[in-house]
């Protein structure tokens, strides 16, 4: 950039940008702050900002009353499980489409994407009945299956856009040197593909963690992940803002941190490579 920017202009932009950024972030900040208040202080008027007795009791209460960590663990198992299984199925498929493209590769890719366009509510009834009849309702296995399938197209697409950027010449050179398909994948491709696979994993864990249609409809008490557990706070019970905040803070903190790390890959993954 050759354009000179006056310090004055930069200062004004800084103020405006920070104001908007903080306003957008405020609900999250407020949730975290409220989680450290007592229930009485959480509803105090005027709202207490930093001058209150900080307490950790809400975190203890939330765990005690409803076994928070079981739901947290459900979220971990479901989001990681569906992502890892998805990757195991998707990596070979994306690899093949990126390096051995056939006439119909593009059609297959587009068709896979089209399955993602299916509105979940369109298949809610049969899936619910299938799950009920096979005993998968309210099990982690059931949710892992569903989330693997709904996110599989995104995983394949994201991996495909990464793999396509690996220069084919390197593979040819390896082949000339007599590398077999197996060693080609193991020693040449894998090291180059690891960053792409890692960011695919990250984005998919985030999407699965926050998925709130199937997790709400297919679970009850046992397999409920955090999305469903937090929803149980929708029926108010006395003073509960501080407890709701503590439960929410624990539910969003890990994913917020992961998300901040993956913001660059996010654009590519969510637009199927249409915006880079």
């Amino acid at each position: 950039m050759a354009r000179a920017i006056t310090p004055r202009r930069k200062a004004i932009t800084t103020v405006i940008a920070w104001t908007i950024g903080l306003l957008i972030f405020f609900p999250i900040f407020w949730t975290v702050l409220t989680s450290f208040k007592t229930e009485a202080e959480a509803v105090a008027t005027p709202p207490r900002f930093l001058m209150f007795d900080w307490t950790l009791e809400n975190y203890a209460t939330v765990q005690e009353r409803s076994n928070y960590f079981r739901h947290f663990w459900n979220s971990v198992v479901i989001s990681l499980g569906s992502t890892v299984i998805g990757l195991i199925i998707a990596i070979p498929a994306a690899w093949a489409m990126a390096f051995v493209p056939g006439k119909r590769t593009k059609d297959v890719l587009m068709w896979m994407l089209s399955t993602k366009m299916l509105p979940p509510v369109g298949v809610l009834v049969p899936l619910y009945l299938l799950f009920r009849d096979t005993g998968l309702l309210d099990t982690r296995t059931g949710l892992v299956i569903v989330l693997t399938l709904i996110n599989l197209p995104i995983i394949i697409w994201m991996l495909y856009t990464y793999f396509r950027e690996i220069p084919g010449e390197i593979l040819e050179a390896a082949r000339m040197d007599g590398a077999t398909l197996r060693s080609e994948i193991l020693y040449v491709l894998t090291p180059m593909a690891v960053p792409g696979i890692a960011s695919t994993l990250l984005l998919n864990v985030i999407l699965a963690w926050n998925e709130a249609f199937w997790t709400l409809n297919l679970t009850a008490a046992n397999a409920a992940p955090l999305t469903a557990f937090i929803a149980s706070y929708s029926s108010p019970e006395g003073l509960f803002y501080a407890k709701l905040s503590a439960a929410s803070t624990m539910a969003i903190a890990p994913i917020l941190i992961l998300g901040w790390f993956s913001q660059k890959q996010l654009v590519r993954g969510l637009t199927f490579g249409a915006v880079k």
Binding site: G21, L22, N210, A231, L244, S248, I252, I255, L256, W260
Partner: peptide, 18 residues
């Protein structure tokens, strides 16, 4: 940029209830 992006990572049930 991180502040502006943050709400996207909040799960729907949390943001709605908050």
């Amino acid at each position: 940029r991180l502040l502006v992006l943050a709400p996207f990572f909040v799960m729907p049930t949390v943001s709605a209830l908050v």
